[in-house]
Design a binder for these strands. Sequence first.
DNA 1: AAACACACCAACCGCTGCCAC
DNA 2: GGTGGCAGCGGTTGGTGTGTT
Length: 321
Amino acid sequence: MGKGRAPCCDKSQVKRGPWSPSEDLRLITFIQKHGHDNWRALPKQAGLLRCGKSCRLRWINYLRPDLKRGNFTKEEEETIIKLHEALGNKWSKIANHFPGRTDNEIKNVWNTHLKKRWSFKDGNSHGEELSSITSSSSSSSTSFTTCGKQNIGVEKVEDSQRAKDPREEQTSCSVSSYDSNSSGAVEVPIRPEEQIMDSLLQYGGPYDVNNMLQEVNKPGLEIPLEADVDFWNMLDGLDSVQVGHDQVDARESSNFIQVENKKWLCYLETELGLDAMGEENREVLTKDAVVAPENFQCQPEDVAYFPMWPSWPHDHNSASK
DNA sequence: AAACACACCAACCGCTGCCAC
DNA sequence: GGTGGCAGCGGTTGGTGTGTT
């Protein structure tokens, strides 16, 4: 072995931990345009401070457009159990039987509850009881897409209880921010450009990678990749704003959130040439982020449009960092 | 209401297998 | 056949949410 393999990347030079929205967008945009022939070279080419491995993992497990999201059905779970009996911990081989599912996902499902069910079935007669408990996860809310921790517990919580959780109400993946049928949401017409912005980054609504992918592919919406450094700097700036939230405990300040959302939207629209927010709100960009300027009035539609700070998949992680 | 325990899952780490030279 | 580089795989961990006491 000798010195062993050289590390795949310089750990001190790459970013680690949860992926930010802008990183996701960068990765998606790059792969949509150039594919992923060389994972090692990809981060540099895409302007990402990430290890190629990390990029690959993020794409395969999370950003791929063909991913099937949502809970596993009872049939899928049964199949996993059968395949595991035949193949063992060959997660990638098992995953081959589930188009749109990742090996990591299947591994997690197995380790979290299928293993228990299987061992119970194997060892005693309580298999059915446990099965009825664990498989409850497959019966609820299969419509939502990736929400990170947002869907934890939703699987097991009754609807009546679910509604009590304000975070769940505001960020639930099954409720689009511009779904006019959403209970409690102020019904306002959403401009097309706002929909683009919203679905592109889902800044004020549920995080849906599929939406982002669709928007990236839309004709007429050109996302600068290599050339427009400002654009990415701006997105990177968003990340830092998010990270800074815990510093100012801003999640508890709805006014702050609304203002920040507005600022973000103004800026992004300006950058993308949509310029839909108008001149009056753009000056907010120059103001202090924490204190809402007096002349900035949050309209009801702002609240409806930005019901909550974005719930990126990694939100639970970044909040503590 | 607080403290604790448990569940969950995204992401990391290190190993393996394959391929080119 | 040996070596190095790569993608892929599987085990594990860390952080957060949820349930229970």
